[in-house]
């Protein structure tokens, strides 16, 4: 019932079927290019002609659009305003307000930076929308990522919805005992104690039990583990990844060199 913590949308598309590492490399490449490219319009074009089409290929455009308008745009908009106002560059003043002034240059600069952030966040969003976290983690663990690290990520994603439903039960139990959760601020603050106590204590117990349960199944065993899930990885994808890595390296080199 509470499976909505990860962004992942289960659909069948080319993007969903790609190996998680390929998608992750693609995201990194997009970000690197957007941030290091000397050409002004790079991030804008990447967004319009790579990321948006990819969201259609991944069949998640609706969700992507939703996340973009609700999450990414407000943040980028704020960044844009801040930089437009406070960048002390340029002479062509467009607008002046006390000590704040917007110049043509600062506007251009802010636009580019906001776009870079949009590329970064939106490409990650797309990645999360089309990749199940446990698929990503089991792929990375297979490639040598320490199991403990994967466990921290995965267990957090799993525990949070559980805590959510647990806190609902606790609230119900205490309201049944006449706890008034409505009313003024002080009354509400006072009613927190009976809610937080069992929640924190219960969650700690649960974390311990989880640790014991996975240890009972040989979590820290040094031997090589097999995986129940086969995660596809074609040689074609390997070539793509190498291509992307070359792009990443090139963009870094170019940036240092230029």
């Amino acid at each position: 019932m509470h499976e909505r913590l990860s962004f992942h949308i289960k659909r069948d598309s080319v993007l969903h079927r790609l190996n998680p590492l390929t998608k992750l490399t693609l995201v990194l490449a997009l970000i690197m290019v957007a941030f290091t490219s000397p050409w002004y319009w790079t991030p804008h074009l990447l967004f319009l002609f790579v990321i948006i089409p990819l969201s259609f290929i991944g069949k998640v455009f609706r969700e992507f659009f939703f996340a973009a308008t609700r999450l990414i745009l407000p943040a980028a908009g704020f960044l844009f305003l801040m930089q437009a106002f406070f960048q002390p560059i340029g002479e062509h003043v467009i607008f002046k307000f006390y000590f704040l002034d917007i110049t043509q240059e600062s506007l251009m600069f802010a636009f580019k930076n906001a776009m870079r952030v949009i590329v970064m966040v939106s490409s990650f969003t797309l990645f999360l929308l089309t990749t199940h976290p446990s698929e990503l983690m089991s792929d990375l663990t297979r490639r040598g990522l320490p199991g403990q690290f994967a466990y921290v990520i995965i267990s957090t994603l799993q525990i949070l919805p559980q805590i959510q439903s647990k806190s609902q039960t606790i609230i119900s139990a205490q309201r049944s005992r006449g706890l008034d959760t409505e009313g003024n601020f002080f009354k509400r603050a006072g009613s927190l104690v009976p809610l937080v106590g069992p929640l924190v204590f219960g969650s700690l117990v649960e974390v311990e039990e989880r640790a014991i349960a996975i240890e009972a199944r040989g979590f820290t065993s040094k031997s090589i583990k097999t995986s129940l899930y086969e995660i596809a990885d074609t040689s074609f994808e390997k070539i793509i990844r190498w291509g992307l890595i070359i792009i990443i390296i090139l963009s870094i080199v170019l940036n240092i060199w230029l």
Binding site: I170, A173, S176, T181, E182, P198, G202, V205
Partner: peptide, 23 residues
């Protein structure tokens, strides 16, 4: 009527005591 109000007529013992003990 609110749950807090109805609590004066209906007492409800939840299944798991750990979800209500806090004192």
């Amino acid at each position: 009527h609110s749950v807090a109000k109805l609590a004066s007529r209906v007492g409800y013992v939840f299944q798991n005591p750990d979800e209500q003990l806090f004192s």
